[in-house]
Write a protein that binds this DNA or RNA. Structure first.
Lengths: 364, 364
DNA sequence: TTGTAGGCGTTATCAT
DNA sequence: ATGATAACGCCTACAA
């Protein structure tokens, strides 16, 4: 009952409240304008070879002129594929996550997929809601990044029968597909680097206890020590929560030791940020008095003072890989299971040869 | 091997959990199980008072047991509202953007909306594709953050007849709704702070020329100088691109001056990061020899060495505001137009009283 | 209080 | 090469 002749919608220059709902042209509108049936329009727009080249061209022209945009929602209803994925992340306001998200989004977009983004905030209740929302929206697949609440909702996810890919998850159930960083190797390389600089009093400033990546990075640290024949001192293992503030407190503890370490392996760059702050507040200098190494190689790592030696994760690439694997799974492949990507030690200026006299307790 | 024909094949999993049906249950399946008509199921699930409490309860139980999730895509088709918004951002891998995104997502989610996230990478072609995708997905509204390619696609957006809210956009067309920070006031406060510390040789390290926020922040800087009767030196205005690397080069230029500044107002914290790096590479110290102030108050600002004096933008709040305003617009209100939020100067340790002798050119 | 009959905008399956 | 017609899963009249 709306338009008949033009099919061209009002520009809305004068946006009357009621006029706003002028509906977008439908495939039938285009069909009428082109004097063909709507299936023909559908075919023409999909470049089907079945339709006469001339009319196809005409149809496309008319569609374009009237600003026609095929409704993905209607299409999704009939094809049962929405070309949509759900992406759940603890919080986008985390440099690691946002890089991964970036890689995922690019790849998805390149393939004509759109991505629903949802923060879980590590809140189980929110996580439930998110998954429910994704289910209702009929996403074709799901990617979960750095989740800390795995066990709880993984069953829920599997219930909805869409493929799932995890990125650096803390609770990688044995049954899911994932993209993980080589935590152990990376961390071992970092600790080995410190050993090679002559350090023997090397501490580990970790994430919360029990998370898979923390466990693995700790294991890498231990391995490097073991191989060098350096005994592990339990008071040299402290825990933060992956963020600067908690890392500060943890580093404070380390520095309060009667005989503090001359080097610290941090769980990640965010922790390293806090550690360096603590060190500075104690009147000590990096790397002269204490060497610090991080993990991730976030954008700011080259700009800390001094620039941070760290273990690089190819975050965007990991996002891309996750998306590509999800594509495979969505197209029915059952093969992909776990992809492990390599971590790379990036030596900058926060690590230096140990000084003969070790750390003197600072004055400030 | 299943369905296609009558659809009576999948009835098997009546005992609740157990086997996963190939097809997700539809409203009709639930209706059959509950021995009612599907509209009744629909009503029951929406807690309509029209349906008998007992049967409603039974229906809900059955729906829940069989893992029924109403299809948002089917619902969207009939209601013409998808409860979905499109969010376009230059790149999520930018701390400012991700904070804003976070605020938006939270608010959207709290109201039952899902958000499509898309990166434009400041690439006009991608931007076109993104908008096209949003149009096809029939999003109810759009938010654009920090876009640098306004003019180009804004018309495109308006063509699709959904409300749009801009956050800190560089080309705020006169006709759109937006949430903006008080650039001028914030920047003026920063420069004033430096003036009060006795500085008279204050430089401005900006973003690319021509962007609205850069223009405004520069204006604030100029105002502070004017009010203090400090003459503006054109060689003290240099441009980066809002990222650390370009800021380094810009700062290099400043330091190469015969008579360099004793303080710098940076366009944002990312630029400040680069500026501080450059200063350090020149063998100078912050704040003893040069004071530095940023803009944004990103998470790392408290952890730079020294901690960065900066102008805080309430990024999440801005995201939240944008979303709330979009809600109003989507519900038909025409009132909201431009919201300006206040910037707040956060004094930390990268700024100090000017030294009588000024900057000595560093040796390294 | 509940059921019946459309219809939303597509694609798919037949015909012709 | 094109056109009827039937889904897809839901909601909203309107009827009972």
């Amino acid at each position: 009952m709306v338009d008949k002749g033009t099919g061209k919608v009002d520009e809305g220059a004068r946006s009357g409240v009621s006029e706003r709902t002028l509906r977008q042209p439908s495939i039938k509108d285009i069909a009428r304008l082109a004097r063909v049936s709507h299936p023909t329009v559908s075919r023409a727009l999909q470049n089907s070879p079945l339709v006469n080249a001339k009319t196809a061209e005409r149809i496309r022209r008319i569609a374009s002129e009237s600003g026609y945009r095929a409704s993905a929602v209607a299409r999704g209803l009939v094809t049962k594929r929405t070309r949509t994925i759900g992406l759940v992340v603890t919080t986008v306001a985390d440099p690691f996550a946002s890089e991964v998200v970036c890689g995922i989004e690019q790849t998805a977009s390149d393939h004509g997929y759109s991505v629903f983004l949802a923060d879980s905030n590590a809140d189980p209740e929110r996580e439930r809601k998110v998954v429910q929302a994704f289910a209702e929206r009929r996403v074709d697949g799901i990617i979960v990044t750095s989740s800390r609440v795995g066990a709880l909702y993984l069953p829920l996810l599997s219930e909805m029968m869409v493929p799932i890919v995890l990125v650096n998850d803390q609770y990688p159930g044995a049954f899911v597909h994932s993209v993980m960083i080589g935590n152990l190797e990376g961390s071992r390389a970092a600790a080995k680097h410190l050993v090679e600089l002559g350090h023997t009093r090397i501490a580990y400033l970790g994430d919360q206890f029990g998370y898979q990546s923390d466990v693995e990075r700790f294991a890498g640290y231990r391995e490097a020590l073991d191989r060098a024949g350096i005994p592990f001192l339990s008071e040299f293992a402290v825990h933060g929560d992956g963020k600067p503030e908690a890392a500060m407190s943890a580093m404070d503890k380390l520095l309060a030791l009667a005989n503090p370490p001359t080097a610290v392996c941090c769980y990640n760059d965010m922790s390293a940020l806090g550690a360096m702050q603590s060190i500075r507040l104690h009147g000590l200098r990096v790397p002269e008095e204490i060497s610090v190494v991080g993990f991730d190689d976030l954008f700011f790592a080259s700009y800390t003072q001094p620039p941070l030696t760290t273990v690089r994760q190819p975050m965007r690439r990991m996002g891309q890989l996750a998306m590509e694997n999800l594509f495979k799974l969505m197209s029915g492949e059952e093969s992909v299971v776990k992809v492990k990507v390599e971590a790379e030690l990036i030596v900058r200026e926060s690590t230096a040869r140990v000084r003969p006299n070790g750390v003197r307790k600072g004055n400030r």
